[in-house]
Design a protein around this nucleic acid. Structure first.
Length: 475
RNA sequence: GGCCCCAUCGUCUAACGGUUAGGACAUCACCCUCUCAAGGUGGGAAUACGGAUUCGAAUUCCGUUGGGGUCACCA
């Protein structure tokens, strides 16, 4: 049996897209499952679209999810290889130089459009004199086009869809080498997949229409074909291709919004793949063993953000405290002003993690819940404070008694605070809302906050008393 | 528009000819409750349509409709 070798082949033209990352996950998991190799190939043959740090961004996205590649190739460094094979095709009369200019081609397309014909290259240099072609190549720019078969059919095979037949009349002589000498995707991808001994080409379904082009190149070069696996598209809720106008689409967007690695990985793997009828939470290690390309679905999947949120919240609740504390500290540092981060750093991030984990869907939620740590309550009116009570006097009573109680309390553990304050409620014959609600306002002044016991616990005695006293003074 | 792919609750999906069509997210109701969550219990919700094959079809075949993708010297 041949070794399983798969590749993830992004082009470094922007921020890594979440849909591409899903393709990477499928490839990587399949490689792990089969004890094969996961190859990263940078498809940077369009010099005009290259973005600074494009390669690094792609690598960082993979590493964020813990996907390490076994081999790395960069197409722009392999220019001569593609030239060699294109030359071979010319010599064998399976490709030819085309001298048509952009303007010429535009004109052709316009004409075809106005005549309501299909727009495609008309093969004007297909049978051009070989001597002339060669001599012109010495002084004029040209592209190299592939001589597509004009009759018959091209049989293709996709692992999850089966056989697909294309009528060769639909094909045109597409460009394989551009005038700047770089190969087009269609050509570089075939040459590289062959040379790199790729066993399975797993890529997005949007490539399916160009499969016959690739198949014909394989045939022309006399190469054996890999298994093609076209992955279902990931669509936006409006059922169109997921793009920037739908909001977050790049990997960095999701990191910035506070999504964490295991949730992202788990969520993405379920877009177009399922294990069985009830299991849906998996660790990455489990997936390495159970991932099965035969279970990849055919139909496109809509990106269901609510479910991602749920997964993220679930993982935030379940990962261990140290890990969450680390995620939180990194996220906070990147999200808030240095001054505020300094204040919040004086608290124990593990304590913060425990305080917010039950009620955070994202790390950004964690941040919002923690804001009271560096934002002291500021009141606009007395009403804000007394809203939980029946009267000013009752509110004052609650605050004064609480102040006294907490002053006398040494043990600020959550359980002890619960006991003490419960007793206070009983003694004063007041409802939880009146006592705990009022304290929550005075301590955090947040509509949504962690439970008051957690807040007092993390703030500790001194700061808690200061905040209560401040409110009493204000009343 | 040509070509290609696809079609199970709103969404992600399970089912590999025989199930009361299962699970999850979301949603609704109730419980819990210091806010918000989490958690618990329960409810509603799907095989696009029409033929054919078969004792029997979500499942196979054909058509219709719908959706998506793709038609560059971008990938």
């Amino acid at each position: 049996m041949n070794e399983t070798r798969v590749r993830y082949a992004p082009s470094p033209t922007g921020d890594p897209h979440i849909g591409n990352l899903r393709s990477a996950i499928f490839n990587w998991l399949f490689a792990k499952k089969e004890n094969g190799k996961f190859i990263l190939r940078i498809e940077d043959t369009d010099q005009s679209r290259i973005v600074k740090n494009g390669i690094e961004k792609q690598q960082e996205a993979l590493l964020w999810l813990g996907m390490q590649w076994d081999e790395l190739y960069i197409q722009s460094e392999r220019k001569s290889i593609y030239a060699k094979y294109s030359q071979k095709l010319i010599e064998e009369d399976k490709a030819y130089r085309c001298y048509a200019t952009e303007e010429e081609l535009d004109e052709l397309r316009q004409k075809q459009k106005s005549e309501k014909k299909i727009t495609r290259y008309d093969g004007r240099y297909r049978d051009y004199d070989k001597e002339k072609s060669l001599s012109r190549s010495k002084k004029e720019p040209y592209v190299i086009r592939f001589k597509s078969p004009q009759n018959g059919e091209t049989q293709c095979f996709d692992k999850i869809r089966g056989g697909i037949t294309f009528n060769n009349k639909e094909l045109d002589d597409f460009v394989i080498i551009k005038s700047d000498g770089f190969p087009t995707y269609h050509f570089a991808n075939v040459v590289d997949d062959h040379l790199m001994k790729i066993s399975h080409v797993m890529r997005a379904e949007e490539w399916l229409p160009s499969l016959p082009k690739h198949v014909n190149i394989y045939n022309a070069l006399g190469w054996e074909m890999p298994t093609f696996v076209h992955l279902p598209m990931i669509l936006a809720p409006d059922k169109t291709k997921l793009s920037k106008r739908h909001g977050a689409t790049s990997v960095q967007d999701f990191i910035d919004q506070g999504y964490i690695k295991p949730a992202m990985f788990n969520f993405l793997v379920l877009l177009g793949w399922a294990f069985d009828d009830k299991t849906e939470q998996f660790t990455i290690n489990e997936l390495k063993n159970i991932f099965d390309i035969n279970k990849i679905s055919k139909s496109p999947a809509i990106f269901n953000k609510e479910k991602l949120d749920w997964f993220n919240g679930k993982y935030i609740r379940e990962i261990n405290t140290n890990e969450l504390a680390k995620e939180i500290s990194i996220f906070f540092e990147n999200s808030i002003e240095p001054n505020n981060f300094n204040i919040i750093s004086s608290y124990d991030f593990k304590k913060i993690a425990n305080m917010v984990k039950e009620r955070s869907k994202t790390l950004n939620d964690s941040l919002i819940l923690s804001e009271f740590l560096f934002k002291k309550p500021k009141f606009e009116s007395k009403e804000e404070i007394i809203t939980m009570c029946e009267s000013d006097d009752q509110c004052k009573l609650v605050l004064e008694k609480s102040f006294k109680l907490l002053s006398d309390t040494k043990d600020f553990s959550i359980s002890n605070l619960q006991n003490k304050l419960k007793k206070l409620m009983d003694d004063l014959n007041l409802k939880p809302k009146q006592v705990l609600g009022t304290l929550r306002i005075v301590i955090t002044n947040q509509k949504i906050s962690p439970p008051i016991f957690d807040c007092l616990n993390i703030l500790e005695k001194e700061e808690s008393l200061i905040r209560i006293q401040t409110a009493i003074d204000y009343l």
